[in-house]
């Protein structure tokens, strides 16, 4: 992969990472969902470009799954949940935004240095793609760690999945089965957690997961 094709793939993968940083920065739920939809859109573009480049039509399916489920259905559904619950104004970040951004930059640096070192034998694009994907995964994890709201944790989890699909699409010859299963697992996770949120709301009048700890009866 050379020339313009490499640049475009590189741009899209880098775009994913950029959007991940945008997600960390957002402290409002509805804005966060919009950014997540944007990330899914970039992901589907990236995967579609890979499908075109690798001449692998099954990757178009993955791109479509990313576009339809993650860029449209899930954000809309989550947005409805947020509106229904009336929690559109709250984002309780545990760590300050600035500090989180700094940590995110550190994680990206770590994953790029690590991946470039480990995959010295692979071709240039695969190395960069894996580095970006690992950064996106780590940033998704970082988001799950630094937010205490259940909805933003779900978003962080799905962002993590996006990073995995980015890596899977970049590797040549990855079978379709895996991508579909990953996509479905995200969907299932979404449904389960959606239901869970409603029950949580019904019972405790809050989607803050600290409410769960009271139920366990632990002495914190």
């Amino acid at each position: 992969m050379e020339g313009l094709a490499f640049d475009i793939a590189h741009l899209l993968a880098g775009g994913m990472l950029l959007v991940s940083f945008m997600m960390i920065y957002q402290d409002r739920l509805l804005a966060l969902l919009k950014v997540f939809a944007l990330q899914a859109l970039v992901l589907s573009l990236s995967v579609a470009w890979q499908a075109y480049q690798q001449d692998a039509p099954h990757l178009y399916v993955t791109a479509a799954i990313a576009l339809i489920f993650k860029a449209v259905i899930i954000p809309i559904a989550l947005r409805r949940i947020v509106l229904q619950l009336g929690i559109q104004r709250q984002v309780e970040t545990v760590v300050g935004i600035g500090l989180t951004m700094l940590a995110g930059i550190g994680l990206s640096a770590l994953s790029i240095v690590l991946m470039l070192k480990v995959t010295a034998a692979a071709d240039a694009f695969a190395r960069e793609d894996l580095a970006f994907a690992l950064s996106v995964v780590l940033l998704g994890l970082l988001m799950m760690v630094t937010r205490s709201n259940a909805v933003s944790q779900v978003v962080g989890f799905m962002s993590l999945e996006n990073g995995m699909i980015l890596a899977a699409a970049g590797a040549k010859g990855m079978p379709l089965v895996v991508e579909i299963s990953v996509a479905f697992s995200v969907l299932v996770a979404f449904i389960v957690i959606g239901v869970f949120l409603f029950r949580l709301r019904e019972r405790f009048d809050s989607v803050d997961i600290t409410a769960l700890e009271d139920v366990r009866g632990d002495q914190e």
Binding site: V94, V113, K117, L141, V145, S148, T210, E213, D218
Partner: peptide, 24 residues
């Protein structure tokens, strides 16, 4: 046994980062 869910996630996250740094 009695940590918050986020702390468990943080533990996993921290260990992952440590291992990655070690690998590097």
């Amino acid at each position: 046994q009695f940590l918050t869910i986020r702390l468990y996630l943080s533990l996993v996250f921290g260990l992952l980062i440590l291992l990655l740094i070690g690998l590097m």
